[in-house]
Amino acid sequence: MLHIVNKSATDRGSLESCLRMATQGSAVLLIEDAVYAATTGNAAAAKIQAAKAGLKIYALGPDLAARGMAARVLDGVNVVDYGGFVDLVAEHSNCQSWL
């Protein structure tokens, strides 16, 4: 399953709700304001670091760049473009947007 999160983890609880419900081996894609959680120094970065053990974590590159965060991405987070986003949706049998 692909989980899509779009809100900043330092503003809302959707990333935490997602990580709680994502089963082992699932993919989590951070888009829009959610990408901040995948950057060094962010208070939520530890949650992403911990989640990497059981989940595949992706962040949308254009959203990182638009927020000046392209150079601060955590190690082990896979940066994808919109084409990569499309591939992730295609590769997983279903998806859930944590609005």
Binding site: A22, T23, N94
Partner: peptide
């Protein structure tokens, strides 16, 4: 989580 994962 398992229930969610098995949905279409």
């Amino acid at each position: 989580a398992n229930l969610m994962a098995e949905q279409d």
